[in-house]
């Protein structure tokens, strides 16, 4: 008998280890469940990204979590900049400031550290 081809399976599940707990990740490496988030999750992701978090990072991380709770949307960069400008003024609400904090893309990385889904690619 021919060896049968294995059935298609769902992609392998990845986990993030945080304080002895294994938290589910999505296929982009983002936290699968928003409720699993804690500051330790942000720290674990920051380590992956080689980022040393300071108060300015934390301000952005908390802000994107609030954004998500208000708008049910993971903020893309334009919306993030505009919303931060409204709350903190133009010093903080500008894309250069945010890029200095998160060189690999503020919306992409801040949402990851904040435990949100990855923002839609085309927005």
């Amino acid at each position: 008998m021919e060896a049968s081809k294995p059935h298609n399976t769902l992609p392998k599940q990845d986990f993030l280890k945080v304080k002895g707990r294994e938290l589910e990740l999505d296929r982009h490496g983002y936290l699968a469940n928003y409720e699993d988030w804690s500051e330790n999750v942000a720290l674990a992701f920051a380590e992956q990204e080689d980022l040393a978090l300071n108060d300015k990072h934390w301000e952005v991380i908390r802000f994107v979590r609030e954004f998500y709770e208000t708008y049910d949307t993971s903020p893309a960069i334009r919306a993030l900049v505009k919303a931060m400008k409204e709350q903190f003024g133009p010093e903080v609400g500008n894309s250069r400031y945010l890029h200095r904090l998160f060189p690999d893309g503020p919306a992409k990385i801040a949402t990851k550290l904040a435990g949100l889904p990855k923002p839609a690619k085309c927005l």
Binding site: D72, T73, A83
Partner: peptide
């Protein structure tokens, strides 16, 4: 599902 009314509130943030 995500709340549509909440999402719509973000429209002005996209001009």
């Amino acid at each position: 599902h995500k709340n549509m009314a909440k999402k719509l509130k973000a429209l002005p943030l996209f001009d």
